[in-house]
Amino acid sequence: MKRRWAMVIDMDLCTGCGACVVACVAENNTPTVGEAEAGKGRLMHWIRVVRYFRKEHAETRAIFVATPCMHCEKAPCEIVCPVYATYHDEDDHVNAMVYNRCIGTRYCGNNCPYSVRVFNWWDYKREKPLDEQLNPDLTVRSRGVMEKCSYCIQRIRRGKEAALKEGRDIRDGEVLPACAQTCPPGAIQFGDLNDPGSAVSRLMKDPRRFRLMEHLGTEPSTVYLKKLRAQGR
């Protein structure tokens, strides 16, 4: 069965705590690069919380934009890969990345308007006993390979397997990426757009909905709900 996974991030609920970033690092075996590498802009996080500050009268307000991969329907990264290491998964309608096919040209990262793709500049070693916390469900990437948010494809597959074993369809809210599962205010919603009753299908009709850099025509699957503004908030 074809699915169209989508994510809705409610900026009104997001407090910018960064729990999604931590959860993602733990779930997806994302390496910790260290201070020197981070200074060169080589952070490996698959989701980051971008802060914007707005001065309003006497106070400064912060707006947080959690930015995972947008999983664009018309992805700029896919068309530039010379070896088809990144392609559109037709079963799940997500932007897939195959690590063992990647030769590290970094074209995809350059062509991504959202800058969500990260590159393994080195083989990042995990000191003992930290190597034992690695998630066995997905590959530990090596040096010279591009990587990015996969909407926790390993969890999607677990959900499919559970549904297959019980001979039923995947329930809405059964499959959650690590960021959505951990978000304390529940700002991240995840689900299947092909299911008209799912939470994301309903939120897609919300008047607050917008997409990042919509003018580029990338048709992102990750959409945002605008921050509400009222007196004193």
Partner: peptide
């Protein structure tokens, strides 16, 4: 059956 890359490689 599926021959999608992500079926076996993630």
């Amino acid at each position: 059956v599926s021959i999608d890359c992500w079926t076996c490689h993630i």
